[in-house]
């Protein structure tokens, strides 16, 4: 039994802007003394996000053309370049205090990678990191993207793991600015159907384990002002 807990908000499908707002509210809560650590799990409708290292040329279509396809574009405060989020992907936003967890920025990025690799083992998917890069790769290509922001040592943004086959949005961008990058998913690599809920469960368990914490469902006190569970 560990005393440390991570409070999991499994919010299902949620538009990007709403989830970003939720992250910011949790960061603000922690800044005003809430000691709980959180993990938001979400599936976004198709969206392109541009990080601080973002390069417009890494989006292959004009923003109007993306808008016409129902894909919004957000310039956001996380590290990294351009990425895509969409259905079939589990996105995780850990809101944790790095100082409290005894981590620094670098070790935290490595912790996320370790957790993703661990979670993928449950689906018999071998994955690994690449020297000098951040993310998780398999023999068929990149399966998880990572990009974070830190304010007063509190993290937000996080990781995105491709679960289902045929997430088409990546052809809209040059993922992470790597032109030769192939993007894959858990289903593509393991060759059989995977349930999103199983991916969420394994990612939650692996992340909590990596953090040395117990995953518990978050209570709906300060969080659900507009969208009750």
């Amino acid at each position: 039994m560990t005393e440390k807990k991570i409070h999991v908000l499994d919010v299902g499908r949620m538009p990007y802007a709403e989830a970003l707002d939720l992250q910011k509210r949790l960061v603000a809560a922690k800044k005003s003394g809430d000691e709980r650590d959180f993990l938001i799990l979400v599936e976004h409708p198709g969206v392109v996000t541009v990080g601080r290292r973002g390069n417009e040329s890494h989006i292959r279509l004009p923003r109007e053309a993306l808008a016409a396809r129902g894909v919004e574009v957000y310039d956001i405060e996380r590290g990294g370049d351009v990425t895509y989020h969409g259905p079939g992907q589990v996105v995780g936003y850990p809101i944790i205090d790095l100082k409290h967890a005894g981590l620094d920025v670098h070790s935290y990025l490595r912790l996320i990678e370790t957790a993703v690799i661990e979670a993928l083992r449950a689906f018999h998917v071998e994955s690994y990191t690449r020297e000098g890069l951040t993310g998780v790769w398999t023999r068929l290509g990149k399966v998880a993207a990572i990009g974070i922001a830190v304010s007063r040592w509190i993290t937000y943004h996080g990781f995105a793991v491709n679960v289902l086959r045929g997430i088409t949005g990546f052809d809209l961008i040059v993922p992470c600015g790597l032109t030769t990058e192939r993007v894959t998913s858990i289903e593509d690599v393991c060759g059989s159907p995977v349930e999103m809920k199983d991916a969420r469960r394994e990612l939650t368990a692996a992340f909590a384990r990596a953090l040395g914490a117990e995953a518990v469902a978050a209570q709906g006190d300060l969080i659900w002002k507009e969208a009750p569970l």
Binding site: R52, R53, E77, G79, G80, H106, I148
Partner: peptide, 11 residues
């Protein structure tokens, strides 16, 4: 400040 994948706000 920025590293490759992190935007860190110096407090």
């Amino acid at each position: 400040v920025l590293t490759d994948k992190a935007a860190f706000n110096v407090p």
